[in-house]
Structure formats: C-alpha cells, structure tokens
C-alpha cells in the first residue's frame, strides 16, 4: 500500500517536471526589445509574467542618459502602461523597469528600442549624436564591469596546506576511533 501510494505521488509529480522553466520578469512589451519604431510613440506598455504590485514603475532614458518624464503610469494586474506628454523624438532609448512581483521580490531589468521616424529635420543631428554616445557608454560599462569582477584569488599554497591538514585529521581521527571498542 505504502509502495503504491509512493509510486502514485512520484508519477503525480513527474507529470509536472517537464513543464519547463518559468521566468520572472518581462513577458512582452510595446515597443518590443530592439524594435525600431517608425511612428509617433506616446504610450509604453510592459507586460509581466506575474501580477505586479503597487509602486512598480519604469523609467525611459535617452541615449545621453537623461530620463524622459512620464506623465502617467497605471498598473493593472500584470501590465504597466506609461503615457508620455510628447511623442518621443528620434534616437535610441532605454527602458529601465523596477517592479515588485506577486511574490514580493523586487525585480529589475532593462531593454532598448529606437525611434526612427522618417523625414524629420533632426535626423542628421540625431545620427551624429548616436555615433558619439554609444562609445562613451561602452567605455563606462567596461569600466564598471571590470570593477565588479575584480578577483581576489587565494594564494597558491592555501589549498595544498588545507588538504594536508584534512588528511592529518582523517588519519588522526581514524586511529583514535579504531582504538575504541565496538
């Protein structure tokens, strides 16, 4: 009976296993990641995989890193909709989201999109900007990353000496234990 019920539980859970990996975070967005938007853009929608709690929010930054004011952010279940006062100008933008999922864990992330409306006067200007900015950005990023991943390695003699000590403990305690009666 015990065996049967155990087998049953096992099969029961086995059916769940292959459902794959669930990801917390962004499910979809409008505009999408890396999308090139060719129309006036005044509303940004982020859809998440779980319900998002009050005080979840996002920011939009242009290529220089200035944030674009968002007029109104509304939360409904798993969606955040932000509307902008003016349509976005041509250029690349970064959306940084910062939410609290239904499990109460704060989660953050970012994605990029580009606005490229044809026949705009500022196009040439923007392109110039774009050429200049990413370089600076990359430099900054590389700097930050190398800081984060600075490694303090152990001196090379530590591990061998730890091993020697461990061997001594094994031998010592084995000898001590074998001296005792069963």
């Amino acid at each position: 009976m015990v065996r049967k019920s155990m087998l049953f539980t096992f099969l029961f859970f086995l059916t769940f296993i292959n459902n794959g990996l669930a990801h917390t975070g962004l499910e979809s967005s409008s505009p999408q990641d890396n999308e090139i938007v060719k129309e006036d853009l005044q509303e940004i929608t982020l859809t998440f995989e779980t319900k998002v709690e009050q005080s979840s929010t996002f920011q939009i930054k242009n290529s220089i890193g200035e944030s674009i004011p968002i007029e109104n952010i509304s939360l409904t279940n798993n969606k955040i909709v932000g509307s902008l006062q003016y349509p976005l100008e041509n250029g690349s933008y970064k959306v940084e989201w910062n939410i609290i999922g239904a499990d109460g864990h704060p989660i953050e992330g970012e994605y990029h999109f580009t606005v490229q409306i044809p026949d705009k006067q500022s196009q040439i200007e923007q392109e110039q900007n774009q050429v200049k900015q990413p370089k600076q950005d990359e430099n900054k990023k590389a700097n930050e990353e190398s800081k984060k991943f600075e490694q303090k390695k152990l001196p090379s003699y530590v591990i061998p000496s730890v091993i020697v000590v461990l061997i001594l403990i094994v031998i010592g305690s084995f000898l001590l234990l074998m001296r005792r009666k069963n």
């Binding site: 591990i159 061998p160 091993i163 461990l166 061997i167 094994v170 305690s173 084995f174 234990l177 074998m178 005792r180 009666k181 069963n182």
Partner: peptide, 29 residues
C-alpha cells in the same frame, strides 16, 4: 588531482561520521 584527493577525503569523512557511531565515540565527533 586536487579535487580528486579532496573527493576521496570527503568520502572518508562521511565514513568517519558513521564510524563514530559504531565505535561509540561522543556524538559531537
């Protein structure tokens, strides 16, 4: 080599855990 030696030591420590009981050593051992 290093991780191999450590693995063997780990197995020995596990055996010593059980051996401490068989040899009536204090449980803390």
């Amino acid at each position: 080599v290093t991780s191999g030696i450590l693995m063997i030591l780990a197995v020995l420590f596990l055996m010593l855990t059980v051996l401490s009981f068989i040899k009536k050593a204090p449980p803390v051992t």
